[in-house]
Computed example of a mutant assay.
Amino acid sequence: RELCLECGVKFIACQMTMDVFGFSKEDFIDGVEFAGAAMFLEYAADADIQLFI
């Protein structure tokens, strides 16, 4: 995780999934960004690699 952050990898949590499972931003590790599907797709369209987990 530290190496990924140092290399500029973005961790984006899905806001809809967070809502479904009752997670809050405080439940996540530092460095995670939060976005809806539309925001992610806009970012992913310009990214070289995407990994959905």
Rank of each mutant, 00 (worst) to 15 (best):
L3P: 00
M18H: 04
E42W: 07
M16S: 12
A47G: 03
E33T: 07
G8L: 02
G22N: 12
G8R: 05
K10C: 08
A35K: 01
Q15N: 12
Q50T: 15
S24M: 10
F28R: 04
A37H: 02
D48P: 04
G22T: 13
C14I: 01
K10F: 03
C7G: 05
F34N: 00
E42C: 01
F21D: 15
M39I: 06
I12F: 03
A13K: 01
G31Y: 10
E2Y: 07
E26D: 15
C14F: 00
M16E: 11
A45Q: 12
L5W: 01
I12A: 07
I49W: 10
F28Y: 13
E42I: 07
F28C: 08
Y43M: 13
G8W: 01
F11M: 07
D19L: 12
A35T: 03
E6F: 00
M39N: 02
C7S: 12
F11E: 00
F23C: 03
A47D: 02
R1T: 14
F28Q: 01
Q15C: 06
V20M: 10
F52H: 02
L51M: 15
A44E: 14
S24F: 02
V20W: 04
V9N: 08
I12Q: 02
G31E: 09
A13G: 09
G8M: 05
M16G: 15
D48N: 12
E26M: 03
G36N: 14
M16I: 05
S24A: 08
F21Y: 15
F23Q: 02
S24C: 09
A44G: 07
C14E: 06
Y43P: 00
D27Y: 05
Y43S: 03
A37E: 04
G22I: 09
V32E: 05
L3D: 06
G8V: 03
F11H: 05
M18A: 09
D30G: 08
V32P: 02
F52D: 00
F40D: 06
S24Q: 11
C7P: 00
A38R: 08
G31A: 05
R1C: 06
V32D: 05
I29F: 09
I29N: 10
D27S: 14
G36R: 10
A35W: 03
G36Q: 14
A35M: 15
A37M: 07
L51Y: 09
L41P: 08
E2M: 07
Q15F: 01
F34C: 02
